[in-house]
């Protein structure tokens, strides 16, 4: 299909023509062709130096340089380990509280545990400790088991699991209504007297609320019971949410609709240093309690 017409450029003509533009057979630029012809050399060199030829049976040629991706990873790993070594050595000998009091070490702890926090904690508690639906916020000042650095460390190490029995069928509709009103008001610093009586078990239903939540309804760190008088709810602050918790409890195996709330123990899965760093990380989300 090529005609041998010579055009004014002296190049062969393919005979293709679109809208008056003719396609010629000019050579590509010389530097480009040189590079193109060098590509087989590159390929040969690459095949010699790097692992590239698969053998039957799953193995492959090793290459003269002995390069492996795992080797690269280990090299990078060693590099970062050597940078971290002096810090790691220092941090191993410090308590979590001492780390907190040393801004530089605290910064190191937070930066070096970011990955681990993202892997295991952020799923429920959020990458910034902002919590998730029905999972505790770590950045606020409300703690179920205490917000001191020691308590946080204990929580990470041993895990936590609250217990609240299901109260379904234990109240008359009237009592339940009063109790809900009491809980609503408590969050806003008010006391609804008829409901308080239900809470305290002074009515016939004889509820055991103060056993865990205390007579002032402020909760108890020792059993992980929630403070019912503050502006933060463990699960859901709406009337329906509070009612659900009341009627079905928390971790009550006898009630299929119970709220599940279990913090796993990380003792066997993480090192002491990792747990210390995590405690510092959680403390520094902004809600840690001093002293």
């Amino acid at each position: 299909m090529a005609d041998k017409d010579k055009n004014n450029q002296g190049a062969e003509d393919t005979g293709h023509e679109w809208d008056g533009i003719r396609e010629l057979k000019n050579d590509p630029p010389r530097w480009w062709m040189i590079l193109f012809k060098l590509t087989p050399v590159w390929i040969a060199g690459y095949f010699l130096l790097y692992p590239s030829i698969p053998f039957v049976g799953g193995s492959n040629s090793k290459g003269l340089l002995g390069w492996t991706s795992l080797g690269e990873y280990n090299k990078g790993r060693q590099e970062i380990d050597s940078i971290r070594a002096p810090f790691e050595k220092k941090i191993a000998a410090m308590t979590a509280k001492e780390i907190l009091n040393d801004p530089e070490m605290a910064n190191y702890a937070v930066a070096s545990i970011k990955q681990t926090f993202g892997d295991i904690c952020a799923k429920c508690h959020g990458s910034g400790g902002q919590g998730g639906h029905n999972f505790p916020i770590l950045a606020d000042d409300d703690w179920l088991y205490g917000g001191t650095i020691e308590k946080i460390q204990e929580t990470v190490t041993e895990g936590r699991g609250g217990i609240m029995p299901s109260f379904k069928g234990r109240f008359t509709p009237e009592e339940q209504k009063d109790l809900m009103q009491f809980l609503d008001d408590a969050q806003h610093g008010k006391t609804f007297e008829p409901g308080r009586k239900v809470f305290m078990g002074e009515t016939k239903a004889a509820a055991e609320c103060p056993t865990c939540h205390g007579e002032n309804a402020k909760g108890n760190y020792d059993v992980g019971s929630a403070n019912l008088t503050d502006a933060i709810c463990r699960f859901d602050c709406t009337r329906e949410g509070l009612e659900h918790t009341l009627l079905h409890g928390v971790n009550d195996d006898g009630d299929p609709m119970t709220r599940k709330a279990t913090m796993p123990a990380w003792r066997s899965k993480l090192t002491d240093v990792q747990i210390k760093k995590l405690a510092v990380r959680v403390f520094l989300f902004g809600g840690g309690q001093k002293g």
Partner: peptide
């Protein structure tokens, strides 16, 4: 300013920024 969370509600009803 902290991006996640932008603010945190406190137990006394106040707001905290990090």
């Amino acid at each position: 300013h902290e991006r996640q969370p932008l603010y945190v509600m406190l137990s006394d009803g106040g707001v905290q920024n990090k």
